[in-house]
Design a protein around this nucleic acid. Structure first.
Lengths: 195, 195
DNA sequence: ACCTGAACACCGTTCAAGT
DNA sequence: ACCTGAACACCGTTCAAGT
């Protein structure tokens, strides 16, 4: 039918991404679909594919917003330095996952098909978190390589505890228990590297 | 059409689960479908739903086989005791994930819709792994509660490192690097709890 | 009693046909 | 040049109709 041009390409992208965020937030990642977004913004499925390369590309454009917000939330709540900063970051991460479970879990429920690598623009955003954590480890060890290793180890570990905890695979209940395990992790790990 | 009775209910279940395992192993979880399984075993989609409660129930019956095999593999390769046992378990876990990536990742790519809890028969199998790890921690701490906390912390952490590592979100390459991070984790964490 | 397969209500993806 | 929406090839789920 008609070329509507009610909205510019950029406006359409923003509308689609916002509508997608809303669906994930309210109904969970498993209930997200590109067709549902199209219906919600009053366009057809063809328009979505006109704007995004593929279903995965669309999802990544939604998830990167969550990633940025999460990163911002963590940075905001990290007021101390060194060891305290690391504890604050972990607590904020858990809080974000708890408050916005559907959006947080969409970050990990979406898996690229087979072994397709993440596009650079998304990958960079992931790396930013490690840089942030790494900078605070630098204040503790003063050894760039050790700080990098420690920040990756701690961050991935916290994520694992959070994920298994949130999905009921740790036989623990609530964010408080998750916090206890990450506390145990950080406390003992930091003791270890300071020996 | 016809009531075929070529196979008993149990035989059908086994055929379906085996066919499902094969698809996941060779084509990855994203390419699995109940209809594909039906085609592969020469039955119709109706038969699959006759045998399993739902799509999720079907997947859990496939995944529990993987879970049992993984558990067996880890137990087989754990010949030492105490701290060495824990290191062996972690190495075996990484090895299993590496050798059988598609089946291992299906364990985590499958997420129950919204907040449906895992059925008891599946949940129990998950707990067995923690019991196994926990028993070896008991040899180190002699404190049941501390051992439980340590085993959950370590196991969930190892899983997180493995998952982010395998999906390219840690900016590291290969199983060797993953092993380095888990080594760092275990070494420092154990130092910490022994202080 | 058991199994089928058509029917239903969805998907992601493509692209000829319209303006 | 841009957008549509029909068409294609799939899904999971249900259940009346067959044997």
């Amino acid at each position: 039918m008609a070329r509507r041009s009610d909205h510019s390409r950029d406006e359409l992208r923003e509308m689609a991404v916002n509508a997608g965020q809303e669906i994930i937030k309210n109904e969970g990642f498993s209930n997200f679909s590109a067709r549902k977004v199209a219906r919600n913004i009053g366009y057809t499925i063809g328009t979505i594919y006109n704007i995004f390369e593929s279903h995965d590309d669309f999802i990544l454009h939604i998830n990167i917003i969550t990633l940025r917000e999460m990163c911002g939330f963590i940075a905001e709540n990290t007021t101390e330095t060194g060891e305290d900063a690391i504890k604050q970051m972990v607590s904020s991460y858990i809080k974000f996952a708890q408050n916005d479970y559907n959006r947080w879990s969409a970050l990990f429920e979406h898996v690229m098909p087979n072994n397709t690598p993440l596009p650079d623009w998304y990958d960079e955003e992931v790396k930013k978190i490690f840089l942030l954590v790494g900078s605070h480890f630098m204040a503790i060890t003063n050894d760039a390589e050790a700080a990098q290793m420690a920040s990756r180890t701690i961050w991935a570990s916290v994520h694992g505890i959070c994920q298994l905890g949130m999905t009921g695979k740790l036989d623990i209940i609530g964010a408080q228990s998750i916090q206890e395990l990450t506390d145990s992790l950080i406390e003992n790990y930091l003791k270890g590297i300071k020996l």
